Computed example of a mutant assay.
Amino acid sequence: MSAVCLFILILCLYGTARTAAGKAETDGYEVIRIKVGKQVTIQCRSASNQEMLYLKRGLNEEEDIFYLTDSKKSTINQKFTDRLQFHGRVPNVHILLKNLTLDDTGPYWCVYKMSSNYELKTSRGNGSVLLVVTESGPAPSPRPVCTGQSQSDLVLISVVICAAVLIFVLAVFLIWIIIKTKPLRSTVKKRQVPVNDVYEDMRGTIRR
């Protein structure tokens, strides 16, 4: 019974791992290191139809950098008025940031909004980047971070380790139960078998 429960638990953990890996792949982004004064292109993409695209900055997406609607209405943050250009239409838009400064360092998110049933639904698209602007350093070198494959491997390894620890704990628990119950079995008194000596003696008396 314990083996069946353990097997079910491992299957549940594996399913959770795959779900988390898929989500990580969807939310994956790139880190770009670039020198001051250079430029970078952020390629925002979405597989579904969208009405509005926001390029946001900050860990909590608190700052709006750029806004574009499917009707080509756009708004640019004052910090990037003369340094931002865009090409394409919602949902696939290439956003060019020029003359980068140290203050431009941070995460940039491609956020889409779509009205459905009188509600405005928000979703994060592909193309988000972590921009690191340095005074001196190598040329722009996009490098994937937190990709689906690496995250999947990491989660699966964690599942295997958790399963191994669980098996070890169950084995120790079973061994402890066996050791605990063994002295109890040895102390149980054997059941005494009734002796029929009196009955045999009476039979001999009657025959006489």
Rank of each mutant, 00 (worst) to 15 (best):
residue 3 A to Y: 07
residue 5 C to W: 09
residue 12 C to E: 10
residue 13 L to H: 04
residue 18 R to V: 13
residue 20 A to I: 02
residue 27 D to W: 12
residue 30 E to Y: 14
residue 31 V to T: 12
residue 33 R to Q: 02
residue 35 K to T: 14
residue 35 K to D: 12
residue 37 G to Q: 07
residue 38 K to S: 12
residue 42 I to V: 09
residue 45 R to V: 08
residue 45 R to S: 07
residue 46 S to E: 12
residue 47 A to D: 10
residue 51 E to C: 11
residue 54 Y to L: 12
residue 58 G to Q: 05
residue 59 L to T: 13
residue 60 N to F: 04
residue 60 N to I: 02
residue 66 F to H: 03
residue 66 F to N: 04
residue 68 L to G: 14
residue 69 T to K: 00
residue 71 S to R: 03
residue 77 N to F: 08
residue 81 T to P: 03
residue 84 L to Y: 05
residue 88 G to R: 00
residue 93 V to Y: 08
residue 93 V to I: 14
residue 96 L to P: 15
residue 98 K to R: 00
residue 106 G to A: 05
residue 107 P to H: 09
residue 113 K to I: 10
residue 116 S to G: 02
residue 120 L to V: 11
residue 122 T to Y: 00
residue 123 S to G: 12
residue 124 R to F: 06
residue 125 G to K: 00
residue 127 G to K: 02
residue 128 S to H: 04
residue 129 V to I: 07
residue 130 L to T: 09
residue 132 V to T: 10
residue 133 V to H: 04
residue 135 E to C: 12
residue 136 S to V: 07
residue 137 G to L: 13
residue 145 V to N: 07
residue 146 C to Q: 14
residue 147 T to Y: 03
residue 148 G to W: 00
residue 149 Q to S: 08
residue 150 S to P: 10
residue 153 D to E: 10
residue 154 L to D: 08
residue 156 L to H: 04
residue 156 L to S: 09
residue 161 I to T: 12
residue 163 A to N: 09
residue 165 V to E: 14
residue 167 I to F: 03
residue 170 L to T: 07
residue 172 V to L: 07
residue 178 I to T: 12
residue 186 S to V: 15
residue 188 V to F: 05
residue 189 K to Q: 05
residue 190 K to H: 11
residue 196 N to H: 03
residue 201 D to R: 01
residue 201 D to F: 13
residue 201 D to S: 14
residue 202 M to A: 05
residue 208 R to I: 14
residue 208 R to Q: 09
